[in-house]
């Protein structure tokens, strides 16, 4: 069954798009990640223009984040104060990201930039997770680390210290807002929620308890992606609402099944699977970058003449 996407301006198979979003939703539910890093490349692959794919992913990520936020909110596992500081940076980062995205698109380097960023980010995080999960799967315990670092680290020296009661941390508003800005920037440019960047940063760098991290990260993603949606809509008119609805339906159903399967697997095994998947996606982008293309030429249409 074909449906015509009014903004992407091409017909797509409804069942194919639903199947893709179900599968990505399944993965995202299983691992607790947004899935944007999988969905955006898939959409580009079926012919949706990069700009429309990135922009239409934003409301879908927002919808699935909102579902999660409601669940964590009921459990009071969201640190709204921490979120507010992250968001202050996040909104600035998103605006910068959308502007940067448009500049890249105009210069013809958008696809290359997205590919290189995916390789670097997914490769690094996937690699680190792979090492960590292989270690714990082999039951080699890493050296116990002190709960708090003995010395003041670089970013601890920033002023404007705030105390976050629910997260039980005491950190500089500037470094947290900086992190938020980076996530917002990456989200707007790459069409990803940034959960896979934010969660490790909050856990390992700022030492926020894991229980609070996920809810807070989801809340941050929700607001950043809503802002991204509005900004892509106002600057580019590139949000395809029909596509977004299809993605939301498939994604929310898929993630429910993913969550159920994910709960049956052990933590290290789950992380090993996720690491392998991140590395596969990174590898795919790397291959596109370094292997000589069959068709070195490409077309882009700019302003109406």
């Amino acid at each position: 069954m074909q449906i015509y996407l009014p903004i992407a301006e091409l017909p797509v198979d409804v069942l194919l798009v639903l199947a893709m979003s179900l599968a990505v939703g399944f993965v995202s539910g299983m691992f607790g990640v947004g899935g944007g890093f999988l969905m955006t490349p898939l959409l580009i692959f079926i012919g949706v223009p990069t700009a429309v794919a990135v922009a239409s992913e934003a409301p879908q990520i927002a919808a699935s984040a909102f579902t999660g936020v409601l669940a964590y909110w009921r459990r009071r596992a969201i640190d709204f104060k921490l979120s507010a500081v992250l968001l202050a940076g996040g909104v600035v980062g998103s605006a910068g990201g959308v502007a940067f995205f448009n500049a890249l698109r105009a210069s013809g380097q958008l696809d290359a930039f997205i590919a290189i960023s995916y390789v670097l980010m997914l490769g690094t995080i996937g690699g680190l997770m792979l090492v960590e999960s292989v270690r714990s799967n082999l039951d080699v315990a890493p050296k116990p680390r002190p709960r708090r670092p003995p010395t003041r680290r670089f970013f601890d020296r920033f002023p404007l210290k705030l105390r976050f009661r629910r997260s039980m941390i005491h950190a500089s508003a500037i470094s947290l807002a900086g992190l938020g800005a980076f996530i917002g920037f990456a989200g707007a440019v790459l069409g990803v929620g940034g959960g896979f960047l934010l969660v490790p940063a909050l856990v390992y760098v700022f030492r926020v308890p894991t229980a609070v991290v996920v809810g807070t990260s989801l809340f941050q993603i929700l607001v950043t992606m809503l802002a991204s949606t509005v900004m892509h809509a106002t600057t580019n008119a590139s949000v395809d609402i029909v596509l977004a609805i299809l993605l939301m339906i498939g994604g929310s159903i898929g993630s429910q099944f993913g969550v159920r399967v994910g709960q049956k697997l052990s933590g290290p095994r789950l992380r090993l699977l996720l690491a392998v998947m991140l590395l596969v996606v990174a590898g795919r982008f790397l291959a596109d970058l370094v292997i000589e293309p069959d068709e070195p030429f490409s077309i882009s249409q700019t302003e109406r003449a």
Partner: peptide, 28 residues
């Protein structure tokens, strides 16, 4: 849809936001 996306950009963006919240809430 295309006309709204082009001419009433903010309203269109806000509708997309509203839909995302609605569907997210429905799923929950």
């Amino acid at each position: 849809v295309a006309g709204l996306a082009e001419d009433r950009r903010l309203a269109y963006g806000l509708v997309a936001v509203g839909l995302a919240l609605l569907l997210g809430w429905l799923a929950s």
